[in-house]
């Protein structure tokens, strides 16, 4: 659990982060959204003390972060940034082994961990361990960056625009991978992004920031259906709201008995996918399948009723 308590950061006269208070639950993903200059990155960097707060406190599992040395604190917290920040002169394996080495792990344990992570991120260890970062594609570099952040099995992972430099196709794949890994290890993730779509997709909770202030801290559903300020509404985009709501739920929860004409849709698809398919094929209902077996149907009426605030 990360408790951020009335944290403020100002440089000379400029207040960059202004009395922000929020609590991030263990094993959840918190997406911090805002435009550039909103203070979101500064907020993130105060968690691992890359920026020292002017006032206020941050507690991790009840322990004030100022009670440990900054560098010791950071070794316990994973950190991944935009453009990956890999060390260009060290191999992929050495990059991933950075924090284990700092913590004094023995060689075998470190090597095993590097192998495990490379496999987890679908990079063949034999092929990739000794490559230099510049010999990798952008997507591969980004995966190594996240693998490096997770090397010492941190409970908390801080990410600053981790997918910012990726093209859309690779980006959505990287997002899915991140969610899978997060569920597997139950890591608490704080992720900074300027992209509301990404925040809605990844976040259990979303914190919207503007000019150093926290405007709203709520679940994606609440952010979409009840934006606290006009600025939050603008970030979501009013024309997009129904579709964003639909994208939050999956078909499985809304299956009705019965069947319908045409190709079925998988139970794990989002309501938005189902809606798109209905419109595109001009049908009023879709059969829903699970592992190839049709188990029921989903109707246009039902989707419509979920595309507005409950």
């Amino acid at each position: 659990m990360i408790e951020i308590d009335a944290i403020t950061k100002s440089y000379d006269q400029t207040v960059v982060v202004d009395h922000v208070t929020l609590t991030i639950e263990p094993s959840s993903v918190c997406a911090v959204v805002g435009t550039s200059g909103s203070g979101k990155t500064t907020l993130l960097r105060m968690i691992n003390r890359l920026v020292e707060p002017t006032s206020g406190a941050i507690r991790i599992d009840g322990e004030d972060t100022r009670n440990t040395h900054a560098y010791e604190l950071r070794r316990k917290i994973g950190y991944a940034i935009q453009g990956h920040g890999l060390f260009p002169h060290r191999s992929v394996g050495q990059n991933i082994a950075t924090v284990p080495k700092l913590l004094g792990w023995d060689k075998d344990k470190t090597r095993a961990r590097v192998t495990e992570l490379l496999e987890l991120f679908q990079l063949d260890p034999a092929q990739f361990r000794d490559r230099l970062p510049r010999e990798l594609s952008g997507g591969q570099q980004q995966r190594v960056g996240v693998a490096r952040a997770l090397a010492a099995k941190p409970n908390i992972l801080l990410m600053d625009e981790p997918f910012g430099a990726l093209d859309p196709v690779i980006r959505s794949k990287a997002q899915e991978d991140l969610l899978t890994i997060q569920r597997q290890f139950e890591t608490t993730i704080v992720l900074v992004t300027h992209d509301m779509e990404e925040a809605i997709h990844l976040g259990d909770k979303i914190a919207v920031m503007d000019e150093g202030k926290l405007l709203q801290f709520a679940s994606p559903q609440q952010i979409i259906s009840k934006p606290a300020t006009p600025f939050v509404a603008e970030l979501i985009g009013t024309g997009e709201r129904p579709f964003k709501l639909l994208s939050l739920a999956r078909v499985g929860k809304f299956v009705e008995p019965g069947s319908a004409e045409g190709d079925p849709i998988d139970i794990s698809a989002t309501l938005r996918d189902a809606y798109a398919e209905l419109l595109w094929s001009g049908r009023a209902a879709l059969p829903v399948s699970e592992k190839g077996q049709v188990i029921g149907k989903i109707t246009l009426d039902q989707l419509s009723s979920h595309a507005r605030p409950q």
Binding site: L50, Y71, K76, I81, G85, T98, L102
Partner: peptide, 18 residues
């Protein structure tokens, strides 16, 4: 030295000397 590499190094808990 790339700023991102330096920032990442700091963020992972390297001391100034490291």
């Amino acid at each position: 030295v790339p700023e991102a590499a330096n920032d990442a190094a700091k963020g992972m808990g390297m001391t100034g000397a490291q």
